[in-house]
Amino acid sequence: MNAVDSADQCAPALRPLSSLGERRNYRDQVAHALRAALVTGQLRPGELYSAPALAACFGVSATPVREAMLDLVREGLVETVSNKGFRVTAVTERQLDEYTHIRSLIEIPTVTGLARTAGAGELAALRLQAQRIVAAAKDRDLIGYIEADRAFHLGLLELAGNRHLVEVVGDLRKRARLYGLNVLAERGLLVASAQEHLELLDALLAHDEELVTAVMTRHLGHVRGLWARPQSD
């Protein structure tokens, strides 16, 4: 398979680094942008991408791009192709099912438990992030949606006080990605999924464990049922 042409590699997520905001260094900035492009489908599974061509999109040298790509290799998101570049790895239906199953085993009971232990102030602090998710969904800002969604869910899990649990879920989210977000937005279903974050906070503040479990189960079901199989109907 041939590498994607340089002009075609410059997806919206791969804009010059000067417009990405303040981050720690070029390597981290590039890795962040590449993950966003992977999640939104702007970098396509099975396609080859070269570091020099991607570097041109970012307006940097090829070195931080290669370093960032190697970070993504370690995360299982891309693989190296000798003398050609990097290929985006495909995620099978079985893998997506397994990732979602593991997330449900971890997140549903953990978040349900927060109905008993989380303070009102801690939960209220997450409302702004939930509102950002809804705003991004309404604007069809998929990268903004992804960033706010990740911050909300991992921030919520942090309230349980288990750092390793947060790391595991963060890794699962990266590996599963959010396939089909564009399709979900086009169907008008993204806003409804976004609003579940506010519904979840309300249930937690009401200490309603049964409702928290129901909302979390429904929300994770949307992740697998709608995002993983966007072309099924």
Rank of each mutant, 00 (worst) to 15 (best):
A90R: 13
E47R: 13
Q95I: 10
V60A: 09
L43V: 01
Q42S: 02
P64I: 05
G41E: 02
T80D: 06
K84F: 10
D71C: 08
E67M: 10
Q95Y: 07
P52R: 09
R44T: 12
K84G: 03
P52A: 09
G85T: 09
R44K: 12
H101S: 15
P64Q: 07
V39E: 02
A37S: 11
Q95D: 15
E47D: 12
A53Q: 07
G41V: 02
Y49V: 02
E79V: 12
V81Q: 13
T40N: 02
R66Y: 08
P52F: 05
Q42C: 03
P45Q: 08
S50D: 01
L72P: 06
F58E: 06
V60G: 03
L48I: 14
R94E: 15
L48C: 11
L54V: 02
T92E: 13
P64A: 04
L96F: 08
E93C: 09
D71N: 10
H101R: 15
A51W: 04
Q42F: 00
Y49G: 09
P45M: 05
Q42H: 10
L77Y: 04
L72F: 06
A56H: 11
T89I: 14
E93T: 14
L48M: 05
G59C: 10
L96G: 03
G59A: 08
P45H: 06
T63A: 13
P64W: 04
F58K: 05
S50W: 00
A53V: 01
E75I: 02
V88F: 12
G41T: 04
P64F: 03
D97G: 08
L38Q: 01
P52S: 06
V88G: 12
V81Y: 08
G85K: 03
S61K: 12
A53H: 14
V78L: 04
F58T: 07
T89P: 00
N83L: 11
M69V: 01
P64Y: 04
G59S: 07
R74T: 11
T89N: 14
A55T: 09
F86N: 01
H101G: 12
A53Y: 03
E67P: 00
A53R: 02
A68K: 10
A53N: 11
T92N: 11
L48F: 07
L48A: 05
D97R: 15
H101M: 11
L48H: 08
V73M: 08
T100L: 10
G76F: 10
G46W: 09
A51Y: 02
V65Q: 07
L38D: 02
E79P: 02
E47Q: 13
F58A: 05
K84C: 09
L43H: 01
E98R: 15
L54G: 06
S82D: 15
V78H: 04
V88H: 12
A51K: 00
R44G: 00
T92S: 15
L48P: 02
L70C: 02
K84Y: 11
E98F: 10
V60Q: 05
L77Q: 07
R94M: 12
E98H: 13
S61R: 11
P45G: 06
E98C: 07
A56D: 12
C57N: 07
A53M: 01
L54R: 04
Y49N: 05
A53S: 13
V73P: 06
E75F: 06
R87Y: 10
A37M: 03
P64C: 08
